[in-house]
Amino acid sequence: MRLATTNRTIPGASTTRARSGRRPRVQWKAYLYVLPAFVVFAVFLGIPVVQTAQYSLFEWNGIGPSTWVGLQNYVALFTDVKLRDSFLHAGVMIFFYSVVPVTLALVLTAVISRAAHLRGMSVFRTLLFLPQVVSSVVVATTWISIYSPEGLANQVLRAIGLGSITRAWLGDFDTALPAIGLIGSWLGIGLCLVLFLSGVANIPRELFEAARMDGAGALREFFGITLPALRGQIAVALTLTVVAALKTFDLVYVTTRGGPGNSTSLPAFEAYNRAFTTGQVGSAAAVAIGLSVLILVITAVIQKIQPEDVE
């Protein structure tokens, strides 16, 4: 990680050296360089984040006067069944968006560990990565069609003799959430595979050769060499997919609007819905802050498995 090297180059060090080791001169002009970016950032993102924290301590319907309620909106994150469910659903999303693709991609990487050197790899990489660049609304409309009663999902099931379990996948209380989750798995698998294969390509070949000389089997080779060498890539894959799972909004908004019933409500959707349709702005702000804290904590935990930069 580059951040770990923040202190390595002392800013303006080269200037200092050229001037026989004096303390670096403060370059006041620097503020003029930073100011435009920082003002835009502060006005349209930074200050509103602080305001969100402030909103979360009030009850407000968006129009009338607001009432101070202290931490009540945060208590509701645990006591309000709808809100609690939305965070539990986010856990299910993490399983589908993150655990499934990362695990599957690791297994595949073990099987095809030398694929990065294949001819035509760049074509596969382009195709595997394609879902990342398509607008999520287009992804959503595509999967609505796939999950529709006459859609591809049911078509495949009928073709393999499972016609009895066909249904409108997004309209069923039991299947709507996993159905959205599988879209996440579809999004993640190609990304993880590209990431891991590029990581494996960087492992020195001699390591594998030495292991084979020692008679290590494929399994030991994977756990002894591949997996430890991929720690950095695994951390990146987990960060990306977990954050994507927790931020999921577009897919739910377009496919189910949280329904049927409450079965696909997610925190990001609850925050939107409460703020802009049901007039519970304070509660929405608390959900947003809760979600942000969750994202920051989980990404910080994931960073722990990332190897320290030893330069």
Binding site: F41, G46, P48, Q51, T52, Y55, L291, L296
Partner: peptide, 19 residues
């Protein structure tokens, strides 16, 4: 401060920003 903006979901700032 800028870096923190990389991780935050849009929901964290969009509600007050709208108002």
């Amino acid at each position: 401060l800028l870096l923190a903006g990389l991780m935050l979901p849009a929901e964290a700032f969009i509600i007050p920003l709208y108002y």
